[in-house]
Nucleic acid binder design. Structure first.
Lengths: 220, 220
DNA sequence: ACCTGAACACCGTTCAAGT
DNA sequence: ACCTGAACACCGTTCAAGT
């Protein structure tokens, strides 16, 4: 009943410039990625189907196979785009913050959780269980590693300036990453909190507890 | 080709006692839950289908509808069982640990991550993105709340005994929960670490950083 | 090269029956 | 009550064509 829709196949110009580029000329790939993200944002990963994406873009359900070997490969491409955006968001969070170690870490932490809230579709594709085992193997995309490096570098810098205790910087980066990831994944920042705390304040309050333990003058 | 398997429908006695109870006598519900967990453990949530589960238990693909309104309701039942098991694991982790605040928190943290590793099927059902929006609404099952209470109580106790700094115990519980959840969800404890650190050691090292910041004598 | 329709082996769910 | 088969509207993916 809603299968034979067959709606306007001629709607081609949807680029920002309004250029009349058709999908026959090279932008199908990007259009599929974008449509996939929109679909997930609207209806969740469960609704992510090649047929629906094709319909949204205005091509047959088989067109995607010209650009991606299978559904998993499209998801992997979306992951890559997501991590690039994510790494940029973390870097911006650090840059907009003050110059101190704690300020930078808090800035990145808030950016991390904000990203999860603002782009749930990306977050779901990047960290959700949508990928099957085959995709999990090749999970390590370059942009993911870069995002982690942004965080670890802040800790190394903090140690160099004597603001952070000595020790394995990678371990500390993992701890900081895990903390904010947990908040974002469990959406804890959106729970009602005493004192009408904003989501950002909540993240900073949690982050400060960990930072106090990572400080150069921390006990033990 | 592997559709018409139709293998032995007479395999009924699978209970621990070996009793000859058939699924016609009341244990179909539990059998479906168990088969669902096994299926997810073997092939991931993607492979979780009512048809396959029915085949494993030896009933038609429609039998499940006698006990669950739809697929989501079966998943919700599995969630409930999972959180009960999880809350018990956290409590055991606290009990087996020493009497100090840090020991208890570390014990629960290790138990949390160990649960994620040991029962990935439960963890996936409990926290994964498998649930669609409709299920997310009724997400708050009683056992989940209980698991959180176990953690928060440890912090309240720590404050009462002067081991933990003053402040919102719920916020601190959220921070501790988030930290170990992030480790478990991202499987960070299974990354190769310098010095041949065991998964449990890794969790404790991360946990100690946060605990230092939560201590009564922490700076700031 | 890039796109398509038909076909195949799967899904969840509804419905009308069977015991 | 509890279970079943047939049917319906969906899936991903393969294959043989179309331009």
């Amino acid at each position: 009943m809603r299968c034979d829709d067959d709606f306007e196949m001629a709607s081609l110009s949807k680029t920002a410039a309004g250029a009349k580029k058709t999908y026959h000329h090279g932008n199908l790939r990007a259009a599929l990625i974008e449509a996939g993200l929109e679909l997930i944002a609207e209806k969740g990963v469960r609704a992510f189907t090649l047929r629906e994406i094709g319909a949204r873009v205005g091509v047959s359900r088989m067109a995607a196979y010209r650009h991606f070997a299978d559904k998993a490969k499209l998801l992997a491409a979306m992951r890559e785009v997501g991590f690039a955006k994510f790494a940029a968001a973390l870097e911006e969070g650090r840059h907009k913050a003050g110059r101190g170690f704690a300020a930078r870490m808090n800035g990145m932490g808030v950016a991390y959780v904000q990203f999860a809230r603002e782009y749930p579709a990306y977050f779901e594709v990047m960290f959700g269980g949508a990928q099957d085992v085959a995709v999990k193997a090749e999970e390590k995309c370059a942009e993911e590693e870069r995002a982690f490096q942004v965080l670890e570098q802040a800790i190394v810098d903090g140690q160099a300036r004597g603001e952070v205790r000595a020790g394995d910087s990678r371990l500390m980066a993992c701890a900081a990453w895990s903390l904010v990831h947990g908040i974002g994944a469990l959406r804890l920042d959106q729970m009602p909190f005493a004192g009408g705390m904003t989501p950002a304040d909540f993240v900073i309050a949690c982050s400060n507890l960990l930072l106090a333990g990572m400080a150069a003058d921390a006990k033990k």
